[in-house]
């Protein structure tokens, strides 16, 4: 059989299978997953959005720019691979305690305790501890509402 004839013979089922597989893999599958995901894990499916009161103030998984001295600050975006690394190392967080303490008058012990309460990334003997910046800052705001109300009333606007 000549190559040309072979190709012609194969083409018809091939193009049909191409279309069918596109519909199955490219549409049906992601739509099905979306449907289930939205029902089972709506929070995560929409991007792990963080709320303060009723307002959406960011995603736990995406770093945002904290520039004020009374917040824990994210890594410099150019240092990470994604540019939106939401976490900092334990050491990084602890090194910021002094600054935050002086800006808020919250004691260093209290801040360190707060950090320790929000350690992630370890399991039994495995892994290296880190803390999520937004989680930490939200915990700060919620634990010391009056302090932060005074520092920046806009935080609780809305």
């Amino acid at each position: 059989m000549s190559l040309k004839r072979e190709i012609r013979q194969t083409s018809l089922p091939a193009i049909r299978l191409a279309v069918i597989s596109m519909i199955l893999c490219g549409l049906l599958f992601p739509l099905l997953v979306t449907g289930f995901a939205q029902v089972l894990f709506p929070g995560q499916a929409d991007g792990s959005i963080a709320h303060l009161g009723t307002s959406k103030i960011g995603s736990y998984l995406i770093a945002q720019n904290f520039s004020r001295p009374f917040f824990f600050q994210s890594r410099n975006s150019s240092l990470s691979a994604s540019g939106v690394d939401p976490d900092i190392t334990l050491q990084d967080a602890q090194s910021q305690v002094a600054r935050i303490s002086s800006a808020t008058n919250i004691t260093r012990d209290q801040l360190n305790t707060l950090i320790n309460q929000h350690i992630e990334g370890t399991f039994w003997i495995f892994g290296y501890p880190y803390v999520n910046v937004l989680t930490l800052n939200l915990a700060l705001i919620q634990s010391y509402q009056t302090v932060y109300q005074q520092l920046d009333p806009n935080i609780f606007r809305q």
């Binding site: 992601p30 997953v33 979306t34 995901a37 939205q38 995560q44 499916a45 929409d46 991007g47 792990s48 959005i49 303060l52 307002s55 959406k56 103030i57 960011g58 995603s59 945002q64 720019n65 904290f66 520039s67 004020r68 917040f71 800052n137 705001i141 935080i155």
Partner: peptide, 14 residues
Amino acid sequence: PQTLDGYQILHTVE
């Protein structure tokens, strides 16, 4: 995430 909604625009605490 798994959604067909567009990018979310939010206002941060700052």
